[in-house]
Design a protein around this nucleic acid. Structure first.
Lengths: 164, 164
DNA sequence: GCCGGTGAGTTTGAAAACACAACGCTCTGG
DNA sequence: CCAGAGCGTTGTGTTTTCAAACTCACCGGC
């Protein structure tokens, strides 16, 4: 993977990709900054205005995200030094996380949908994006009842730590 | 929509379902507690052990999640009063968020996958779940290039606030 | 040359959130 | 009667977070 990828920090509790992911992008303001980058807003000023984050917090988050390899800083002015922020491949891979949060938020966290997304591709008619998470293999939405969990990390089971 | 749903708090910055969703489930430990509930661990002791959260933080989060209508408390013992925590419909609807975080974390935040999920349904052979977020209408994975954003909230455009 | 304005942060001091350990309370098993 | 499990709560410091002010460097008029 990219050369920027740092050693992964250990997480408290159960070894888990969710915990590891949240360690990198789960702090307050991080995902909102990433949202703005997806929207095509790359300047610090826009990020503060549109997320509402305090400037110092945003600066700290952007540095952490850069270190995590999620965001890339590009200089667009030499003097004074000015940077824009862009998503790396890892950052762009967060799209499904945002899609699912939008979907959930639309249903459970807001009264009226504040933003809509239109899918416009050459080969089919325009339509609103209605995102859904499915299993690629069988093409179906997966309900938790049909899923068996295999804990691969040693010392842990579904219910918690096991004595070795 | 459940009767428990409280009035939605306003978010800083752009009106946005992502921000609204994170307001409810974005605090530290919340999603990890929800993960454990998906795993079928419902007791306070398990939640602390498996998430690594401090007991007081976990207690605070569970109360906030209950208030947000994501988690439900069930008494399983009268004396002493003891509760288990279960997901509501809103909570179960967070599955796609967790799937996408697992997927991203597996790829970008851990060295080796700590947990695997096997899909076992009556009508087809067992296989590992490989989650992917698609558009329900056209069935395709949606890349941000093909998506147009329509900001419905008054006073806001894609690039930020507009003067009225 | 001076004046206000913009962009990108950094600094500051008070307020909130956090972590950790210890405690209390109630039952259960020996 | 004592030990222990289970579930939080409380008390005590330590970190984060916040909002506002400040810095630094340029730009564009006039």
């Amino acid at each position: 993977m990219s050369s920027a990828t740092p050693p992964h920090p250990t997480v408290p509790g159960r070894p888990c990709s969710v915990a590891a992911a949240l360690q990198l992008v789960g702090e307050r303001w991080s995902l909102l900054a990433i949202r703005e980058l997806f929207y095509g807003n790359h300047r610090f000023e826009q990020l503060t205005r549109n997320t509402g984050a305090p400037r110092d917090r945003l600066a700290a988050r952007l540095r952490a995200l850069e270190e995590a390899g999620v965001v890339e800083r590009r200089r667009y002015s030499e003097r004074p030094e000015r940077f824009e922020y862009h998503l790396t491949e890892a950052g762009r891979d967060l799209a499904p996380v945002l899609w699912s949060l939008v979907k959930w938020g639309d249903k459970w966290a807001v009264d009226a949908k504040p933003v809509a997304f239109t899918h416009q591709a050459a080969d089919h008619p325009e339509h609103e994006v209605d995102s859904v998470t499915v299993c690629r293999t069988c093409g179906e939405q997966v309900t938790s009842k049909e899923v068996a969990i295999s804990v691969l990390a040693p010392g842990w089971a579904r219910t918690g730590p096991v004595d070795l």
